[in-house]
Amino acid sequence: MKDNNILAVVLAGGKSKRFGEDKNQTKLGDKTLLEHVLLKISNRYEEILIVSSHSIDTKKIKNVTIIPDCFDDFGPLAGVLSAMKWVKENQKSYQWIATYPSDTPFFETSIIDEYQKRIKLKDSLLYFVKSNNKRHNIFGLWSIELLKPLENDLINNNFRKVEDWANKIGVKTIDIEPKKFDPFFNINTKEDLEEAKKILKKY
């Protein structure tokens, strides 16, 4: 079931310094890392917004919009703010955005169902996924109500790290117990890519 109250946002604006080239277009099996993510979420959301200044091919996926970061070199928080501002500027009705990194191809889409449960609870404006006692700060569910405080903290208070800002605002976690391997394994280096190829064979 698609939830029209949530906009899916893929944060794909990283510089991939540790990887040495744009990770978004790197192949894992017969798909790019970005395609792995997009294909997983495309049937669960009405629209997908990609925040990136890179040149990206999304012809295989419908209802995708690509926008640049509203601030250069401000990190993922700027990507989140960019998505929220896009919602407001285009008079969309979304009250939440769900963020996904572009370099984590194995995550389970069951987290989307968990997001919908949290919205109904109304006990936080921000949620992050947690597995193996590690909080994944890019797998997040963010209320649009956070737009103004986020913009203020980026511009006036020099916040750049997602973790620091979330701790300041207050965040709850959605705990996921991995069955075999950590589905939130992300690819930062060429060595990680080789490990991902091994996982893909067993996936």
Rank of each mutant, 00 (worst) to 15 (best):
L81C: 13
L81G: 02
A83G: 12
M84Q: 13
M84D: 08
V87E: 12
K88G: 10
K88T: 08
E89A: 14
N90I: 10
Q91Y: 09
Q91K: 14
K92I: 03
S93F: 05
Y94T: 01
I97A: 13
T99N: 05
T99S: 07
S102P: 00
S102G: 06
D103N: 14
D103T: 11
P105T: 14
F106M: 04
E108D: 10
S110P: 00
I111P: 00
I111M: 03
I112R: 14
I112C: 07
I112H: 07
E114V: 02
Y115S: 01
Q116Y: 05
K117A: 08
I119N: 10
D123P: 00
D123K: 15
D123W: 13
L125M: 07
L126E: 09
L126Y: 11
L126T: 01
Y127L: 05
Y127S: 05
Y127K: 02
Y127T: 01
V129H: 03
V129M: 02
S131Q: 07
N132L: 02
N133W: 11
N133G: 01
N137K: 06
I138A: 11
I138H: 12
F139I: 03
G140Q: 08
L141D: 03
S143I: 02
I144N: 15
I144R: 15
L146H: 06
K148R: 09
P149M: 05
N152W: 00
D153P: 00
D153F: 00
L154T: 01
N156L: 05
N157H: 07
N157E: 04
N157G: 00
N158F: 06
N158P: 00
R160A: 06
R160N: 08
K161V: 01
E163A: 15
D164S: 11
A166N: 05
N167H: 15
I169A: 15
G170C: 08
G170M: 13
G170A: 13
T173S: 14
T173I: 07
T173R: 09
I174Y: 08
I174E: 09
D175F: 08
D175M: 06
E177D: 06
K179V: 10
D182M: 05
P183Y: 09
F185A: 11
I187M: 12
I187Q: 09
N188C: 12
N188T: 04
E191I: 11
